[in-house]
Design a protein around this nucleic acid. Structure first.
Lengths: 358, 358
DNA sequence: CTGTTAGCGCGTTCAT
DNA sequence: ATGAACGCGCTAACAG
């Protein structure tokens, strides 16, 4: 009841109500400087009475730093990134930081614009899953930002020439283990599907695949390989259609193309083949789809771990932003293969005698 | 080369460099007020030379409004919400607005805190998928915020007592159509799985289900119904396990519980039943899982449409925020049933002769 | 057309 | 222990 204020109370209103100066109120609120118990009490009362809460904008301007952390991902709706964001938010919230989220759409120039815009908000830090296009990357720019005092933590993709904190995946090991498992299960007539090995992750994956092939003495002929970017989904689908209609279709398909588990699944099932009865599929399983089929063998980037490690490092940097810029820390998480078969799941007949999966 | 400035240039630096006053620079940048062509040129030069860009924080403080739109969703990693956010971002970006995203974790009190925090950032508007818990909701608070001049657009859940713009789903119609289709396909021995009808959406879904049952003269006995919240996943799983092990298990399961398509799928397949060969499943299909099985019959909230309509309305409000608060607009999108069978998909035998699916 | 001035709301010396 | 005064960077009257 009474006089409803439409405009929010300011620190000055509180000061007036408590009969003190603004600085005293500020001291009370920020718990710094000396304030007598009595004054403190009066101020608190006024704060309560006026339902005062400071303006984040004004605080930011005055301190030249906001409590906003800029986040840039290619596309938030990709499960990996929305998970990543979620976990980062859970962690940042503990320290009362908020996340300003942007989609770079995998465009280097757009990413650059977003970075600039975020910077104009005096962000406390930048959390980015950077774009690594054929046009290059913003690695140098990110480096300079970090040097200028704004912490930068990268995830997912390791840019060449980057000198910022980063948390990445050990692609090689994960993909090696997946391929190995397929061979251990006794499959030899297999197909390989992945992005072209133009960027680091793609190269690592292919290398891991070939290392495993060599180790098992298996040769996967060119007509069983499809290296096409995810944009070329039609090409991929034709490939799957073709191999699935052969006299002896592959017993297993290894898919190392991020975000394409669905695509593969749909394409394969649409040819009339059953999964996994007729064909054993492996994938990066970004979207947990394979496990819905009662089994999975995936290179799991373990989103949760990546996110937790990265976000923790991020907050670490934010909280120590006043200290001299530390050496960048690079972490490569070794992901372990998760392979689970639910009771009763039927798999294709192996081509050779399977080995013991330890 | 030369003097590298570590601290960004301010409007004053530009003014000095151009030999004019700050206000002139401001006029040029904001394209308001009269400025001679010559002065304009000089200012632009200075801007270029100093690589000047305004501080979003300072602008916000000065105008008591930021170009940040607050977004609150229960959990961003749910596909519906991350899609929603993505589309909203695409639209907001056209007008150069950014989205500050928060997770309410389906907690009313947490949501309240987030709202307050966002408000302290002088957000241009609030875009929210509000929580409707048994503890109540923030409907009244949202109403007051809107009345105080900050546009509020709600999505997904319609709060009782809300008086803000909102874009919702016509649950009733969608669920009615799904149930109808199951009956049209000739299934009579069916199971029903949903949240308890405590909130509006749940009540609408159940009502739609029962209306369709009545229309087809079908009685679904209590032992074929499971109304449990999604938290009670064990209870749900036991239910599915039980019905799937009966002598004559249900031919179809209607699942109107958001985000539980996976759960249902997994639970059912783990009993050894094949999908859709042994049992026809329907779901809200938030995560596109059912269609991976070569068929789908879903009540599709059509995320894209909801998001587009809502975000467009949102921007509309933001752009006219100076005008008197308009009447709230409530939109209920009628979702149409999408039902597709891929070639070669085998479905369970109908209990009665199917009717023509028009 | 352009410069001066006064805020926007708060943190932070520097005196007292 | 507390208050006055300045600055953060920019916009918006108000003069001229």
């Amino acid at each position: 009841m009474g006089t409803e204020k439409l405009s929010k109370a300011t620190i000055r209103d509180v000061a007036r109500a408590a009969g003190v100066s603004q600085s005293t109120v500020s001291r009370v609120l920020n718990k710094n400087g000396y304030v007598s118990a009595e004054t403190l009490e009066r101020v608190m009362q006024a704060v309560q009475a006026l339902d005062y809460s400071p303006s984040a904008i004004a605080v930011s301007l005055s301190k030249s730093r906001s409590r906003i952390i800029g986040v840039i991902v290619p596309q938030i709706f990709a499960p990996f990134f929305s998970q990543l964001f979620y976990i980062a938010d859970r962690i940042a919230e503990k320290y009362d930081y908020r996340l300003l989220l942007c989609n770079s759409e995998s465009s280097v120039v757009r990413e650059r614009r977003l970075i600039d815009d975020l910077l104009s908000y005096k962000i406390a830090a930048l959390f980015i899953a950077p774009v690594d296009g054929q046009e290059g990357s913003n690695a140098a720019y990110l480096n300079s930002i970090r040097l200028n005092g704004t912490p930068v933590v990268c995830v997912d993709r390791e840019l060449t020439g980057i000198a910022c904190d980063g948390v990445y995946i050990d692609n090689y090991n994960a993909c090696y283990e997946v391929t190995r498992e397929v061979f251990m299960r006794g499959y030899r007539n297999i197909a390989y599907l992945a992005d072209p090995p133009v960027y680091a992750p793609g190269r690592q994956r292919l290398a891991a695949f070939e290392a495993a092939c060599q180790e098992f003495g298996v040769t996967v002929p060119p007509e069983n390989r499809m290296l096409a970017p995810i944009e070329a989904s039609e090409k991929r689908e034709r490939f799957l259609y073709e191999i699935m209609h052969r006299e002896t279709p592959p017993k297993a398909i290894i898919n190392f193309s991020k975000g394409w588990d669905y695509g593969m699944l749909r394409a394969v099932t649409s040819t009339g083949r059953r999964v996994p009865n007729d064909v054993f599929l492996t994938g990066l399983d970004d979207d947990n789809v394979l496990r819905s089929f009662g089994y999975y063998t995936d290179y799991r980037p373990n989103t949760e771990e990546v996110a937790t490690v990265a976000a923790t490092l991020l907050m670490e940097r934010v909280l120590h932003a006043d200290e001299p810029v530390p050496e960048p820390v690079r972490t490569a998480l070794t992901t372990h293969l998760t392979s689970v078969l639910q009771r009763g799941t039927v798999l294709p007949e192996p081509d050779v005698k399977p080995m013991d999966l330890k």
